[in-house]
Computed example of a mutant assay.
Amino acid sequence: MTPAEAHDLIAVVLLSLVAVLTAWCGFQASQWGGDSSVAFSEASAARIEASSFESRARDARGLDLAVYAQWVEAEFNDDQILADYIEARFTPAFAVAFSAWDADGRAENGPFAREEYVPEGTAESAEATSDADAQFERALDFNEKGDNYSLITVLFALVLFLAAIAQRGISVLGSRIVLGVAGVLALGGLILLLTFPMRF
């Protein structure tokens, strides 16, 4: 095999290999991009769910406050029968805080200041918010992985360009230098590519 034929063979092999690697990078970028979109959607859904639970907790807090205001008025008017009637209708979450407040001699400004007061929807809102944050972080991670594959695709596109230039009518020395640079870039890209996580 003549040097010219060996040169052409190396260029063809390099072009073929890098073309396959470019297609693989495109596939991986697409896979990670899809995962990123799903994770972003799940994060958005969790945010909406958290907002719904927070709204429920806010409504429960408003109801408890309104009922408590009636109880305070009954207590102020020494109407124990009415106060007991209202107290029996406290929501479970407020009843726990009220009992703790009453047992401590009513030291705080009211049951709402007690840590025992957790309106319905508060815990669910916090859990949904935490899930949304986790999904958002996953989405960013997936997006970064997809971007890495996209950047490698650009590198391989440069290798294809250089390998194609090496086969055109330039000097033998110039052609070998360009092909050598393309080979080094391809090897570096391949090594870097092997460090990336793969998605099937």
Rank of each mutant, 00 (worst) to 15 (best):
I48T: 10
E54G: 12
S55F: 13
S55L: 15
R56M: 14
A57Y: 03
R58H: 12
A60E: 15
R61D: 14
R61T: 15
G62F: 04
G62Y: 13
D64C: 07
D64R: 08
D64A: 11
L65A: 13
V67E: 11
Q70A: 10
E73G: 01
A74M: 03
A74H: 01
E75L: 05
F76M: 04
N77A: 12
D78G: 01
D78T: 06
D79P: 02
A83C: 06
D84G: 11
Y85K: 08
I86C: 02
E87K: 13
T91I: 07
T91P: 02
P92A: 07
F94P: 02
F94D: 04
F94M: 13
S99A: 15
S99H: 13
W101Q: 12
W101K: 05
A103T: 14
A107E: 15
P111K: 05
F112G: 00
A113E: 15
A113Q: 12
Y117I: 04
V118T: 13
V118K: 10
P119A: 10
P119L: 07
G121L: 06
T122A: 12
A123C: 05
E124M: 10
E124A: 15
S125P: 01
S125D: 10
A128H: 08
T129H: 04
T129S: 08
T129L: 05
S130M: 04
A132I: 00
D133W: 00
A134H: 01
A134D: 03
Q135N: 00
F136W: 01
R138C: 00
F142N: 01
E144V: 04
E144H: 07
E144L: 08
K145N: 07
G146C: 01
G146H: 06
N148V: 05
N148Q: 14
S150E: 09
V154Y: 05
V154C: 01
L155T: 09
F156Y: 12
A157L: 10
V159S: 01
L160V: 03
L162A: 08
Q167A: 00
I170C: 03
V172H: 09
V172W: 09
L173C: 05
S175E: 02
I177L: 14
I177P: 04
I177K: 09
I177E: 02
V178M: 08
G180M: 02
V181L: 13
A182V: 09
A182C: 08
G183M: 11
V184S: 12
A186F: 06
A186R: 02
G188L: 10
G188D: 04
G189I: 03
L190P: 02
L192T: 12
